[in-house]
């Protein structure tokens, strides 16, 4: 355990090296919210709802969604594909550490780092814009936290699976871009809530992991899923998580036999 805490500490130290990156990263969050509130206050002028969403729910969808994005979809596992292709992965493989835990330690610190600063930024934004947000019941809040936890784990293994494609294919970045960026952004509901899409697409997406990582947690927050459905979605989310765990383990076992350790 000590070794993984040390990996997390070193990761944290890396973040503090680039002060300008750090500053601009935080500024980017602030600019997003300024733009978001300006746009949506214009769009929602004179309206009380948009589709099945009230205006406070729309605000909540994107504001809480932004937190989920920062917390779930930030990952260092995206580096693995490149490291496999250029052989830098070797420096990790010769050490008595678990590759999975190594990246998970880095991810956790990444998420905590984001969460810590986002908390203060969030307070500042609430004070500045005073948006009316939809808040969940205690039950929904607990279910939301469970969903968030599942999303983090599911996305971690999902991202590992994408990265491990590099053991077999030299096109590590194209698969990362398609499955790790395009599919995640569109099919998880980050651009627009999935119930704005034709129902048939929503039904198809139910059989993919994407809505479980972003859309359903938000629907739970907004209280738009009944209790029985929450249990069912949580069960589905857990199965997805287990599926990607086993798939990533299988790919790891097979992939390390294919590893070519390019370069001297």
């Amino acid at each position: 355990m000590v070794k993984y805490i040390r990996i997390a500490i070193n990761t944290l130290q890396e973040y503090f090296v680039y002060r300008v990156n750090f500053f601009f990263g935080r500024l980017q969050v602030f600019i997003f919210f300024v733009m978001f509130f300006s746009l949506w206050s214009a769009v929602s002028a004179g309206r009380s709802s948009l589709g099945v969403y009230s205006i406070p729910q729309i605000y909540s969808y994107f504001v809480v969604g932004y937190i989920i994005k920062a917390f779930v979809f930030t990952t260092r596992t995206a580096d693995i594909g490149g490291d496999i292709q250029n052989g830098n992965f070797s420096t990790l493989l010769i050490k008595p550490i678990s590759t999975l835990k190594y990246y998970f330690s880095r991810d956790i610190i990444d998420k905590l780092f984001n969460l810590f600063f986002m908390f203060w930024e969030f307070i500042l934004i609430l004070l500045l814009f005073k948006p009316e947000l939809a808040m969940p019941s205690l039950f929904n809040f607990i279910a939301f936290i469970l969903f968030l936890f599942l999303s983090i784990i599911s996305f971690f293994f999902y991202s590992l699976v994408i990265s491990f494609i590099a053991f077999w294919s030299e096109d590590a970045w194209s698969s990362r871009f398609l499955f790790g960026v395009v599919f995640i952004t569109i099919f998880s509901g980050q651009y627009i809530p999935l119930d704005f899409l034709p129902p048939v697409i929503g039904k198809i997406l139910d059989y993919t992991p994407y809505p479980y990582m972003f859309y359903y947690p938000l629907k739970v927050w907004l209280g738009q899923i009944d209790q029985n459905m929450i249990y069912l979605r949580l069960l589905n989310g857990s199965l997805i998580c287990i599926f990607f765990y086993f798939l990533s383990q299988f790919m790891w076992l097979k992939g390390k036999q294919k590893y070519q350790s390019y370069g001297n």
Binding site: N10, E14, S90, T91, I94, G263, N264
Partner: peptide
């Protein structure tokens, strides 16, 4: 075992 690769870094680059 220990492995020193003349053209690979095991040191963390930024720290």
């Amino acid at each position: 075992i220990g492995f020193v690769m003349g053209q690979k870094n095991q040191l963390w680059w930024d720290i």
